[in-house]
Nucleic acid binder design. Structure first.
Lengths: 153, 153
DNA sequence: AATAAGTACCTGTACGATACAGCTATCTGA
DNA sequence: TCAGATAGCTGTATCGTACAGGTACTTATT
């Protein structure tokens, strides 16, 4: 509708984002119960970030993921217990520990990522390639806007 | 990029959705601590759904919101404690209770909704109206795809 | 009509993710 | 050198959620 009030479009965006989050949560819960009991919540994000940005210490992870340090500490402990990451002393800072993904961790992460990608492929099976890349681009811009708003510091 | 592998676009969508959820959570937490300690999590969604779809019982809410009945029961109790909804016996079913939003509840919900919409307005201030409505439309389609996938029953 | 099966809601309990406060070990700058 | 900052860990609390079980009511079966 080209005569949309902006209000209405913004409201719709707000609605859709809220809905998307509800579904995302529900989906993760549902898939979490199955044999996919593989990577819960932040664990996936942590591994992903490690894979993307390389080994780094807990504080860097916490800052980047918008989580408290203690939360990351515990997540990392769980990941270590499961052999998905390793902690090594930071050679340049005796206080720090560098978190590195293990091959198993990377593999597990990649598997989850592939499964999710496949899921999106299924869901968006009837979308045109243009619509898909438009969605990807706009979501990217939306996230950037979120980042800019949360971190003007 | 027109030569994108589909993989890559889907992967990007997956990434962006994951990011969006992280940010959404973080934002809700952050705003929750302030004087905005107004409507937490599902409470907003419940009130919203009541406003949209009219008074209904706990089971209907739970089914619609993809939540366990006990969860909704507790959320509803909290909302009742805060005077945002009322419970009345279902006249047509002695087991049921009909949940209705109170004026205060509707007002509170509308305030939160307006605040959120304003937030999006801020964040998307430099977006063209076309991009905004495209985002809204594509998010809508994405959610529809999610619904279709979760509810083929 | 009597009773079995199903349903709606509530309560007890448990769990996972998270935050905050406080601790110790280490680093850094005056 | 030492005072303050920082990295990470641990204790504790909270919140949202699920599952299991209980009670009251409804629906279906005979």
């Amino acid at each position: 509708m080209s005569d949309d009030h902006d209000e209405s479009t913004l409201g719709q965006i707000e609605t859709e984002v809220a809905l998307l989050m509800r579904f995302g949560e529900a989906t993760r819960r549902a898939t979490g119960t199955a044999e996919h009991r593989v990577l819960d919540r932040a664990a996936y994000v942590i591994l992903r970030h490690l894979a993307d940005a390389g080994p780094q210490n807990v504080s860097a992870l916490a800052a980047r993921l918008n989580l408290d340090g203690s939360t990351v500490t515990r997540q990392v402990s769980a990941l270590q217990r499961d052999g998905l990451i390793t902690r090594t002393p930071d050679p340049s800072d005796g206080r720090g520990t560098v978190i590195s993904p293990t091959p198993a961790g990377l593999q597990r992460m990649a598997a989850v990522q592939a499964a999710r990608t496949r899921l999106y492929g299924d869901m968006l099976a009837d979308w045109s390639p243009e619509d898909r890349s438009t969605l990807a681009a706009l979501l990217g811009r939306l996230n950037q806007a979120l980042i800019n708003r949360n971190r003007p510091r």
